[in-house]
Amino acid sequence: MELREIEIFLALAEELHFGRTAERLHVTPARVSQAIKKQERAIGAELFRRTSRSVQLTPIGAELRDGLAAGLRQIQDALAAAAEAGKALTGELRIGYSSAWCGSLVLAAADTFRSRHPQCLIELVDLQLADPVKRLRQGLLDLTLLEMPIDEPDLVSGPVVFVEPRALVVPVAHPLARRESVSLEDLADAPMIAVTDQPSYFIDLHYPRRTPRGRLIPRGPSAIAWQEVLALVAAGKGVSPTCLRAANYYSRPDIAFVPFSDAPPVEYGFLRSATGNTAKVRAFVETVLETARTGEASEAAPPGTSA
């Protein structure tokens, strides 16, 4: 039974009048009659009892009506959802990222996403370390990929996309630079360069004030951008934690990246506004997760321009 024939049957089951059914579906009464006779021949039973004065469903017809009505609603809902999703995947999607390695991933995912949804423009934005959520709150971004945790009542975080080992950036002449690894206790032996304008819970995790044994970690100058952090470290003003993958992007002769032996890894995940769960956002998140699983991201630093 074709979809149009199902629609004719269900309309007649509701109207119980061939003329009104034909008018409702913009077909002739003869077309309605032909469709019902075809269905009855295929099923091998009468679906309607017709007299000169009335049209009534038979018990078999009523049972078929109940079964088909639920199925047709599912089909219509699925078609409507697909149409809405297709309509949503146009326009612009603005994605922020907090680091070059996050940018490489979203850039690779943007290429895949654009091939699937050519009518959707992806704009990639390199975010400063300080206040990474400001543009989300201003409505200037739809989604960001950045270091976790971010726990704000008006924002939704997750899913986590990838996890990286933690490392310490130190001046190349510092004694720690000659070590194969460092521990969290070593943070008490050098000033820490931290970023400004971050939530306290974020600072406590990434830039702690005390070691696990309670030793005070001295504070060095603060910074608002990653290149500023590297310049301060190179100048001998302190050390700063990061992820180990940063060495692949920011290798330079005056600094060293030393892995931690006991620090928790750095989690990177998505952040969006509480009202920003659109079809475009969901589709892009899934594309990024797919790209991360298949390892398609390049180690090259991404541009902060439209993809």
Score class of each variant (00 low, 15 high):
Asp66Asn: 10
Leu64Arg: 14
Leu93Trp: 04
Ala108Trp: 02
Gln128Met: 13
His117Pro: 05
Thr112Gly: 09
Arg53Leu: 12
Leu25Arg: 03
Leu124Val: 12
His26Cys: 04
His117Glu: 09
Glu92Gln: 08
Leu89Gln: 02
Phe113Glu: 02
Ile43Thr: 09
Ala30Gly: 13
Gln76Asn: 03
Lys38Ala: 15
Gln39Val: 14
Ala11Pro: 00
Ser54Cys: 05
Ser33Gln: 10
Leu16Pro: 03
Gly96Lys: 03
Glu92Tyr: 04
Glu40Val: 08
Glu14Asn: 12
Pro118Cys: 12
Gln76Ile: 02
Leu124Ala: 13
Val55Ser: 06
Phe113Thr: 03
Ser104Trp: 00
Ala35Asn: 04
Val55Lys: 00
Tyr97His: 10
Lys38Ile: 00
Glu63Ser: 04
Phe113Cys: 05
Ala45Gly: 07
Ala80Gly: 03
Ala108Ser: 15
Ala42Gln: 14
Thr51Ala: 11
Cys120Gln: 13
Ala35Trp: 05
Arg20Gln: 13
Gly96His: 02
Leu124Tyr: 02
Arg116Gln: 15
Arg31Ile: 08
Gln74Asp: 07
Phe113Gly: 01
Lys37Trp: 06
Val55Thr: 11
Gly67Glu: 12
Gly71Lys: 04
Leu57Ala: 00
Glu15Phe: 15
Thr90Ser: 14
Lys87Glu: 14
Glu46Lys: 14
Gln128Trp: 04
Pro118Ser: 11
Arg20Ser: 10
Cys102Phe: 06
Thr112Met: 08
Gly71Pro: 00
Ala11Gln: 08
Leu124Phe: 11
Arg24Gly: 08
Glu14Thr: 14
Arg41Ile: 06
Tyr97Cys: 04
Gly44Gln: 11
Leu57Thr: 00
Arg53Trp: 05
Gln76Pro: 00
Ile43Asp: 07
Ser99Tyr: 06
Thr28Lys: 09
Thr28Tyr: 06
Ala82Trp: 07
Thr112Glu: 15
